[in-house]
Amino acid sequence: MGQLSAKLRRANLAFVAIGSLAGGSWFATEALAHHSYAAEFDRNAPMTIEGVVTEVWFKSPHVRYYIKVADEDGNEVIWDTRGLTPVKLVRSGWLKDTIKVGDRVKLFGHIGHTNKHIMSILDVTLPDGRVLTSRSVAYDIKE
């Protein structure tokens, strides 16, 4: 496998189902709430991808990271991945230079209904092993 080889795996759907039935906390803190997330992303199909960051857009309405990923046939594909709006991320310490061009990252998230190379990021694993989440709502958890 090459350096950019991707580990694409379907998340265990049973886990999703159990998480849902158990009370929804797994999903309930997601908050890409200022547009219809449902129109674009399939929450029944979370995936993990791994690759190298080629571009960083740390801007509203959503941060975007373009990631070079090798598919199962070894072909390189650019994924368009996105997280919460910066004003929400920075409050949790996820800053503009937290993820840089050239970083190798692992992303877990929902992929598009039609475009299978776009992802809404739920969690990202940084090169140093830290895991950040793009699910929290800084001002929505006071009570």
Binding site: W57, K59, S60, H62, D80, R82, V87, V90, R91, K142
Partner: peptide
């Protein structure tokens, strides 16, 4: 929450059109 600061919300539609 008077100790909170309203952050600037700089929005750039570039990535939407690129998609």
């Amino acid at each position: 929450q008077d100790d909170a600061v309203i952050y600037p919300f700089e929005c750039d539609p570039d990535s939407f059109f690129r998609q």
